[in-house]
């Protein structure tokens, strides 16, 4: 696993970290692995919640994103247990959107998913508060209190949300999903909480496209903050003033 964005941390050396983690797992019972790992990793301990000192975001370089490439979509489906069907009633958490400038004919391709807004319309409209934003800016659906009214789907300007129309089985234990609730990209919150990158970003990087950078928008030293400082990036539907966590470069 390569970690392009964590180069500022002491754990920058991905191999070393992986080795340590594996070693710790083996020796977990005898040595005090927690102490050791807290020392080398930036990951917050599990009993500590998400903090507003961080805000997770994505920078997507559309000039590096290839038309016809669905690596991010496939990785998302595998990680989150989606079957990858694309009928009108099938959920899609991330999709590739092809756009063509009507005046110039310039063609681009980009991944579109929940933009993890600072002011998410889906959270505003949700009657029960099931649609919520975590302290670190990740927008989620609390399925325990989602009543399936779909008003958030009406309100989302990015068409990021899907409704589960059918009963599901064999879910990924880390990603509960089920009939009658609304769902969307979670920024792979289960991975982020253990200091990993979202599946789409990891896959895009592994494929060599490097079109997606994930990181902490509030940490001025993070790779994403550095990149945002040096390139021109935009929000989709910036006119709405939602301050999205996902930004695009090259459109």
């Amino acid at each position: 696993m390569s970690e392009p964005i964590k180069q500022d941390t002491p754990a920058a050396d991905g191999e070393r970290r992986t080795f340590l983690k594996a070693g710790a797992a083996v020796a977990g019972a005898v040595v005090a692995p927690g102490v050791l790992l807290y020392g080398v990793s930036q990951a917050r301990p599990p009993e500590e919640g998400a903090s507003s000192k961080q805000r997770w975001g994505l920078l997507i370089d559309t000039t590096k994103c290839g038309g016809g490439c669905h690596t991010c979509v496939d990785a998302c489906n595998a990680e989150n247990g989606l079957d990858g069907k694309t009928g009108p009633q099938d959920p899609q958490w991330i999709r590739k959107v092809d756009i063509k400038d009507l005046r110039t004919g310039y063609v681009q391709s980009l991944p579109m998913m929940c933009q993890h807004c600072e002011h998410p319309p889906c959270v505003d409209v949700c009657p029960t508060g099931a649609s919520m934003k975590r302290a670190d800016g990740i927008v989620l659906v609390d399925r325990h209190i989602c009543i399936g009214c779909r008003y958030c789907m009406m309100a989302c300007p990015y068409k990021a949300r899907s409704f589960v129309h059918e009963p599901l089985t064999d879910q990924n234990p880390e990603v509960p999903r089920g009939k009658g609730c609304v769902e969307s990209c979670t920024l792979c919150v289960q991975r982020v909480d253990r200091d990993e990158q979202p599946a789409c970003v990891e896959a895009c990087t592994a494929e060599g496209h490097q079109a997606m950078i994930f990181g902490d928008l509030k940490d001025p030293q993070s790779a994403i903050s550095q990149a945002l400082k040096s390139v021109d990036s935009v929000e989709v539907r910036a006119d709405l003033g939602l301050n999205t966590g996902v930004r695009y470069q090259g459109i």
Partner: peptide
């Protein structure tokens, strides 16, 4: 109709006990 069309009509009690006061839908209830 509205209630019976919900994805989780069994959670009607949730709709009546959890209110997000910024939601116009909650105000409607």
């Amino acid at each position: 109709i509205l209630v019976l069309d919900l994805g989780r009509p069994d959670r009607l009690v949730v709709a009546m006990t959890y209110y997000n006061f910024k939601s116009i839908f909650a105000w409607n209830m």
